[in-house]
């Protein structure tokens, strides 16, 4: 429970954070809420030699109505996402999913940007924002760029962010009254999902994404295609695992995960259609 020795520097703004990561290179890691990184360091599974603390970048903690979408600062804590009136009005799926992250202590420290940049396929918010068709904003030495959530997750804990980039904002489209549901199946309330499903439906459109069904968060496009092709919810849900590549662990066999993905997708779509 004692990490290997490391240096600590604190960034006062995003520009300084980017310059510091440029200076320290591969051996450095950004520290936001620390709820993914610090446990890995305490187990010595991660041994960065420098931590760049971006926890004081308070100007990156916000939830704003930006017209057609809601803009969420990367350093917004899960608890603030969960309780945001703006999100409750325009993107309730995200606020609800945030209420399922870890436990209250985790939600008071962990940040939405940290969770997405860490890209754990078992985390709730990467898959949820993926289902919603979110766009992520990255800032680097040469300015900012937008990355579609669908293009962001490249492999296990690996994203499209460049080494010298920092995730600054998450943009989720307004849901405009779409039906939605977040189904999280786990053994203890505080745990990562064994399988989770985030889904929404609106007229002919839908979005479904899966938690912990592969090395990255999975967009279940086959389900949406089936639905737009007129399939029933039950039939469409049978396609839930078409894009997935589930792995076995102590809590689930791959077969059980596929089964759960189908059942939870059906339940989510039923709830979203209600």
């Amino acid at each position: 429970m004692i990490p290997a020795a490391f240096d600590y520097v604190r960034a006062e703004n995003a520009e300084q954070a980017i310059s510091l990561i440029g200076e320290h290179g591969d051996e450095a890691k950004f520290l936001a809420g620390g709820h993914s990184l610090l446990p890995l360091m305490k187990l010595r599974l991660a041994q960065p030699t420098v931590l760049i603390d971006i926890g004081r970048l308070t100007d990156l903690s916000y939830v704003r109505d930006a017209g057609d979408h809601i803009a969420i600062g990367a350093l917004t804590r899960h608890m603030d996402v969960e309780n945001s009136p703006v999100l409750h009005e325009h993107a309730p799926l995200l606020a609800h999913a945030a209420s399922h992250v870890g436990d209250p202590q985790v939600r008071h420290r962990g940040t939405i940007g940290g969770s997405i940049a860490h890209a754990d396929p078992a985390s709730d918010l990467p898959a949820t924002t993926l289902a919603m068709g979110a766009t992520y904003v990255a800032q680097g030495p040469n300015g900012t760029r937008e990355i579609a959530a669908a293009d962001f997750y490249e492999g296990f804990l690996t994203t499209a962010l460049a080494a010298d980039e920092i995730l600054t904002e998450i943009r989720v489209p307004k849901m405009n009254g779409a039906g939605w549901s977040f189904q999280k199946f786990n053994r203890r309330a505080q745990d990562w999902a064994i399988v989770g499903v985030a889904a929404w439906r609106s007229n002919g459109d839908s979005g479904v994404a899966l938690v912990n069904m592969g090395s990255v968060p999975i967009l279940a496009s086959s389900v949406s295609s089936a639905l737009s092709g007129g399939a029933s919810v039950a039939d469409a849900a049978e396609q839930a695992a078409a894009e997935a590549d589930p792995q076995p662990d102590l809590n689930a066999s791959a077969e059980y995960r596929v089964h759960l993905a189908k059942v939870l997708t059906r339940r989510a779509l039923d709830a979203a259609s209600g």
Binding site: D103, R188, Q190, L250
Partner: peptide
Amino acid sequence: AVYDTDGNLTTASLAEYLVPAASD
């Protein structure tokens, strides 16, 4: 407490060893 066939304890943290909390 789960051991794999090589004798490694695969539930060596509270993330894998499921002590229920009040909410459970």
